[in-house]
Nucleic acid binder design. Structure first.
Ligand SMILES: [Mn+2]
Ligand SMILES: [Mn+2]
Ligand SMILES: [Zn+2]
Ligand SMILES: [Zn+2]
Lengths: 138, 138
DNA sequence: TTTTTTCTGCAAGTAATTTGCAACTCGCAA
DNA sequence: TTGCGAGTTGCAAATTACTTGCAGAAAAAA
């Protein structure tokens, strides 16, 4: 358990139960909005304030343990940083979120570097469109 | 001018000065937030309410005359539908918004169709990353 | 321990967008 | 032309998502 504590300490952060719970929640949820993180945390620790969740998500993002992405028109969702190894394919019709390996985007990313010197972060925004299922139905 | 009126009528919309002004503002501004659209409209017609602008942007989007995209972490920006002919390369460091032809993404889009049956709308979300300028400086 | 510093809960505050509603006006029909 | 009805507007209030100020609590340093 010293290891787990160390993880946050090494980043120069104070080890509070709230912070650990937020990090655990993000890790166990996959993608989650701040509200969902709060809900998860409160399942075991009801007292924790929503602003504490927001503040910790920001702090954890600053030290690189979590990251946010935009899957839809609204607010951000959070991931564990290690977990960002795929593209998000978001369907505008049904709202489903599919995954694809980041390598799928590699040629595109390379083209943008070569032609514009632009280094793309392909996971920050979702890939938006219509899924196979919804295309079929229409 | 009958033509211009017809354009909205053909979509089944009523022709109000507010609606025409919103559409013109979107067309002349390129990318614009609802607030910016309102500001533009008010330059000549001060009385127009912000909620009218929001409602008309939605209506115009429903009939396909305008579209929204997400360039940053926050709210949406609106374009004329005809004008969506480029990718947006948004720099996370300096906030600059560069353009690239949509064809740049064609191979990537095709890959997603072939492998996942997913039809990508590459303009809905910006391409996010670091521009050449900011990469140099660091 | 005691002290220092960071973090938390709570309440209040913003910013962006939406909604309810009564008054208006556009387009059609008489 | 005028009159009607559905669609539209302005305004105020509501909602949503997030942020901030602050005083007390709790980590970590001393
Ligand atoms: Mn959107
Ligand atoms: Mn973002
Ligand atoms: Zn779908
Ligand atoms: Zn830049």
């Amino acid at each position: 358990m010293a290891d787990k504590n160390q993880e946050l300490r090494d980043k120069g952060l104070r080890l509070t139960p709230q912070r650990q719970l937020v990090l655990e929640a993000v890790r166990s949820l996959g993608h989650a909005t701040p509200e969902e993180v709060a809900e998860k945390v409160r399942a075991t620790h009801p007292g924790i304030n929503l602003s504490t969740v927001y503040r910790n998500l920001e702090t954890l993002e600053n030290v690189g343990l979590v990251q946010h992405t935009h899957l839809g028109h609204g607010g951000a969702t959070y991931h564990a940083a290690e977990e960002l190894t795929h593209l998000h394919l978001v369907c505008s019709k049904c709202g489903s979120v599919g995954d694809a390996p980041i390598e799928t985007a590699a040629p595109f990313v390379n083209t943008l570097i070569d032609e514009y010197g632009f280094k793309t972060d392909v996971t920050h925004f979702a890939i938006y469109g219509t899924c196979a299922n919804c295309t079929e139905k229409s």
